[in-house]
């Protein structure tokens, strides 16, 4: 039996590449969702009401420390059965919600660290200059809080890109899904799965290098010590 066949490789490649759009599209969609939803967590936690703060913190902890795969199944299989608010969602939307919410809890933490990193004097200065709350946030705090977090946010984009194939389990036809169905059809998994691995590698490795560079630049600019570990992991 032929172990490795370049014919199969080429044939499978053409099939799998068709899933690339879905994979990338889903990555972007999940990421944007998480970026926006992350703000939601950050601001909820800033409400100065102890019990609420406590509840939000533990909800975030719950979402963060349970498997995204199960959360995905919950939204896809269980959400339609939930009384009153339940509705059937297509796989793509389910994946956006499932992965988006999961990672929004991480993104929320990133925002928080950025805001905590703003010098205390800046808050006092904003007050001293009599800015409104809205002006304080949009003109003083956020412009300083967000840029230092950009490398970290970039890291999460790569991490999410690598988590997106989880969505193949609920039928989103990304590259992993294409490879698996190709494998099931012709009973040859080696080439298709290798192609998927290569595709991930060629896209994530250069991006990781880019972000590393960006991080060094940012650190210099913001005069911060290099983080011990830039690729803080949120995978599963």
């Amino acid at each position: 039996m032929n172990i490795w066949s370049w014919d199969v490789f080429a044939d499978a490649f053409l099939v799998i590449v068709q899933g690339l759009g879905i994979t990338l599209g889903l990555t972007i969609a999940c990421y944007l969702f998480a970026l926006i939803f992350g703000f939601f967590w950050t601001f909820l936690r800033r409400i100065p009401f102890k019990p609420l703060h406590w509840v939000i913190t533990w909800i975030m902890e719950f979402i963060r420390s349970t498997p995204p795969l199960v959360q995905l199944f919950f939204i896809f299989y269980a959400w339609p059965m939930v009384p009153v608010v339940g509705m059937t969602l297509d796989p793509f939307t389910s994946a956006i919600l499932g992965l988006g919410i999961h990672f929004s809890t991480y993104i929320g933490e990133v925002y928080r660290s950025g805001i905590d990193g703003v010098d205390k004097g800046q808050w006092e200065a904003a007050r001293a200059l009599n800015f409104s709350t809205r002006q304080k946030w949009t003109k003083i705090i956020l412009p300083q809080a967000i840029p230092p977090t950009i490398p970290m946010l970039g890291n999460y984009l790569i991490i999410m890109f690598k988590e997106v194939p989880l969505a193949s389990t609920i039928g989103v036809a990304g590259i992993l899904h294409m490879a698996n169905s190709y494998g099931a059809q012709y009973w040859t998994y080696l080439e298709p799965l290798t192609i998927v691995a290569i595709l991930f590698l060629v896209m994530s490795y250069p991006s990781a290098l880019l972000i590393n560079k960006l991080e060094k630049k940012m650190n210099r600019r913001f005069d911060k010590k290099e983080a011990l570990n830039s690729s803080k992991g949120a995978t599963a």
Binding site: S168, L176, F200
Partner: peptide, 8 residues
């Protein structure tokens, strides 16, 4: 690190 756990 460059590929997904599920793919691996």
């Amino acid at each position: 690190r460059g590929t997904s756990l599920i793919v691996q």
